[in-house]
Nucleic acid binder design. Structure first.
Length: 207
DNA sequence: CGCCAGGGCCATA
DNA sequence: TATGGCCATGGC
């Protein structure tokens, strides 16, 4: 197969099925999760989100003081900066132009303090359903283990996926989700290689 | 105990 | 542009 990215996607999709992924109930919860999960285990993000109880809304977040917000999200770690980041992105959400195209929204997100490339792309793809491929630590590690050189920086890796997959938000969503699901299910456990759908592509005997 | 997790900001060279 | 220090909790 020539297109190794499409190959990877097809193998994972066949093996795991469509994950219908991002663990959140609402688009706004996706945005909050995207900030809170920065360099943080998802189990801690869950605790932080749970502390909002029934109402996790832009209005509530804007109404809280930064210190109150920080206390609520404490289990997610880095709570002082993340409280500020949540305020920033929420304020932007309330004033944004919903008719802007993907590139424009991405620029706006990247201009916010606390929203870097991965967070911006996660929000675009999983909160808004816009076609912007997400590159994260799982993606980079998987490519490394498969000995696939997709470039040396974030934008290059992102472009490699976008140029080799159909330009479709649903496909980008599934592909990234599959990489995460695969990585969580397999690559942190051992024995990890028995029954791995990527055995033929992987350059390691064991990891 | 130490390591690390679905990053990003900022200062420095 | 490319590193390095920093932010902080909870699981293992």
């Amino acid at each position: 197969m020539k297109n190794i990215f499409a190959n990877l996607y097809n193998i994972l999709l066949k093996h795991y099925g469509d994950p219908h992924w991002w663990p959140a109930k609402t688009p706004y919860e996706v945005i909050v999760g995207a900030i809170l999960t920065q360099n943080t285990a998802w189990s801690n993000v869950e605790r932080a989100i749970a502390s909002f109880g029934e109402e996790l809304s832009p209005g509530r977040v804007l109404a809280l003081s930064t210190d109150e917000l920080a206390e609520l999200i404490r289990p997610a770690g880095f709570f002082n900066q993340k409280a500020r980041y949540l305020k920033e992105v929420t304020a932007w959400l309330e004033r944004r132009d919903p008719t802007s195209d993907t590139a424009r929204v991405r620029e706006e997100l990247l201009s916010l303090k606390g929203v870097g490339r991965e967070t911006a792309d996660s929000i675009l793809l999983y909160a808004f359903g816009l076609p912007s491929f997400v590159v994260d630590a799982y993606t980079a590690r998987l490519l490394s283990r498969l000995n696939i050189d997709a470039g040396s920086n974030y934008e290059a890796v992102k472009a490699a996926f976008e140029e080799n997959l159909p330009p479709d938000a649903e496909v980008y969503n599934r592909c990234h989700a599959l990489i995460v699901v695969h990585s969580k299910e397999r690559c942190r456990k051992k024995p990890i290689c028995a029954g791995c759908p990527l055995t033929d592509m992987c350059v390691y005997d064991t990891i």
